[in-house]
């Protein structure tokens, strides 16, 4: 990034200067510099030079902190921080909002408006690679405008201590080419095809539908993350576990073993085979676009 290179080069130049002064100081014979000269040196190199450099950096960096402009047609993503995961809703004005969780996708080169809030305690939404942090405060909507300028994967975290699993509350941001993003959003608006079977029955029988939504099934509860497209996420449980069958099954049986304080009950009595069946069913949905 531009800022980074300027700062790195600046720091290197200053370090070399300090070294040079050091070498000169060691080589110069004693008594060469009188008291007044020494004081003058301290004044210029120790006070005036740093003040000028810092002022210049401040003047140069402050305009970059101005919020980006945005328009009413821009993609909006509502993000709600919950202990300890992220509830998402994409609104692009072409049809109903798309609900998702724990992984954000943004189109490269387009302005994206995040409206962030929280339901339980204060969280903070932070994608260091894309913008500053923004507090998520219950009862208040804060706005963060970002624009990704190259495709890639950025990591986001919760930056405000919010409870036992605060450090396990993260997410990936996938910046995609606009056309791939549009295709993804359109497919996320639909219902993915999903193999029926024992996993579906177990999901219902264990009451998972009391908290989770799986589109295309009778389960529409909104207490926990939407699981419709679990299979396409790059991580499980908000950046905590790898997106594998095994870890999904293990998480289902005992969520708070991996995330202390997680608001999902343990199913310790559930046989691992059943948990694996549910995990397979959840991960089986197709409809992947531009992973």
């Amino acid at each position: 990034m531009h800022l980074t290179s300027v700062l790195v080069i600046g720091a290197t130049v200053i370090a070399l200067l300090v070294l040079a002064v050091y070498v000169i100081a060691v080589r110069t014979p004693e008594g060469k510099l009188d008291h007044v000269g020494g004081m003058r040196l301290v004044l210029w190199l120790g006070a005036i030079f740093p003040t000028v450099v810092l002022t210049a950096l401040l003047l140069w960096a402050l305009p970059a902190m101005r919020p980006l402009p945005h328009q009413s047609g821009d993609l909006r993503i509502q993000v709600q921080g919950e202990q300890f995961w992220w509830r998402l809703r994409y609104e692009d004005g072409n049809g109903p909002g798309v609900i998702s969780a724990n992984e954000v996708r943004v189109p490269v080169g387009r302005t994206v408006v995040f409206d962030v809030t929280a339901t339980d305690v204060v969280h903070s939404f932070w994608i260091p690679g894309l913008g500053g942090k923004m507090d998520m405060i219950p009862g208040r909507i804060n706005r963060l405008v970002v624009k990704a300028d190259k495709p890639g994967i950025f990591r986001g975290v919760c930056a405000e201590f919010c409870g036992l699993s605060h450090a396990l509350m993260a997410f990936d941001v996938i910046a995609m080419e606009p056309s791939a993003f549009d295709a993804w959003l359109a497919s996320a608006r639909g219902v993915p095809a999903r193999a029926d079977g024992r996993g579906a029955e177990l999901f219902s029988a264990n009451g998972c539908g009391a908290c989770h939504t799986v589109k295309g099934t009778p389960h529409t509860a909104m207490i926990g993350p939407d699981l419709t497209r679990l299979g396409e996420r790059r991580s499980l449980a908000a950046g905590t576990l790898p997106p594998t069958l095994e870890s999904t099954a293990a998480f289902i049986r005992n969520a708070s073993r991996f995330k202390p304080g997680a608001r999902m009950p343990a199913y310790s009595a559930m046989p691992i085979e059943d948990a694996t069946e549910i995990a397979r069913w959840l991960r089986s949905a197709d409809g992947e676009a531009g992973r």
């Binding site: 003040t51 810092l54 002022t55 402050l62 305009p63 902190m65 919020p67 706005r143």
Partner: peptide
């Protein structure tokens, strides 16, 4: 006084650049 002068300037400067309450 020198330090405080610069410090006051530094904390006042953002007002000249930032344009909203976010």
């Amino acid at each position: 006084a020198g330090l405080s002068f610069v410090a006051v300037l530094f904390s006042a400067l953002p007002v000249a650049f930032l344009s909203d309450c976010r």
